[in-house]
Amino acid sequence: EAHAAIDTFTKYLDIDEDFATVLVEEGFSTLEELAYVPMKELLEIEGLDEPTVEALRERAKNALATIAQ
């Protein structure tokens, strides 16, 4: 499951495998979680700032909209 989540994140969020791995290690496994989890939870991840989190959430929401079509 972790590998599938990493693949999904790299494909749809335009991030590298290392960043995707950090997200999975922090407990995220779906685009929905990244799109809708409280921003505070993402900001608790070391190295993430508000602009990065906002961009990540926007990419996740856009990916979900694209997949739904």
Rank of each mutant, 00 (worst) to 15 (best):
E1F: 10
E1A: 13
E1W: 13
H3E: 10
H3M: 14
H3T: 12
A4Y: 11
A4D: 12
A5G: 06
I6Q: 04
D7E: 14
D7V: 11
T8M: 15
T8C: 10
T8H: 09
F9D: 00
F9E: 01
T10V: 15
T10C: 12
T10H: 06
K11E: 06
K11L: 08
Y12G: 02
Y12D: 02
Y12P: 01
L13N: 00
L13V: 02
D14P: 02
D14N: 10
D14C: 12
I15T: 01
E17F: 11
E17W: 14
E17H: 12
D18I: 13
F19W: 07
T21Y: 11
T21F: 10
T21I: 11
T21A: 13
V22H: 11
V22P: 00
V24E: 02
V24Y: 14
E25H: 14
E25Q: 14
E25K: 15
F28I: 08
F28D: 00
F28V: 05
F28C: 02
F28A: 01
S29L: 15
S29W: 13
T30Y: 04
T30L: 05
T30K: 07
L31E: 00
L34I: 15
L34H: 01
L34V: 09
A35F: 06
A35M: 10
Y36P: 00
Y36N: 14
V37R: 15
V37E: 06
V37M: 11
V37Q: 08
V37I: 09
M39W: 06
M39A: 08
K40E: 13
K40Y: 12
K40T: 12
E41R: 13
L42R: 03
L42C: 04
L42Y: 04
L42I: 07
L43M: 11
L43R: 05
E44N: 14
E44Y: 11
E44F: 10
E44D: 10
I45E: 01
I45C: 03
E46D: 12
E46C: 10
G47Q: 05
G47K: 05
D49E: 05
D49N: 07
D49I: 04
D49S: 07
P51N: 13
P51M: 13
P51Y: 12
T52A: 12
V53T: 04
V53E: 01
V53R: 05
V53F: 06
E54N: 12
E54F: 08
L56H: 00
L56E: 01
R57W: 05
R59V: 06
R59Y: 05
R59T: 08
R59E: 05
R59M: 12
R59D: 06
A60H: 01
A60Y: 02
A60G: 01
A60W: 02
K61V: 09
N62M: 12
N62E: 13
A65Y: 08
T66S: 12
T66V: 14
T66G: 09
I67T: 05
A68C: 08
A68M: 11
A68K: 09
Q69T: 09
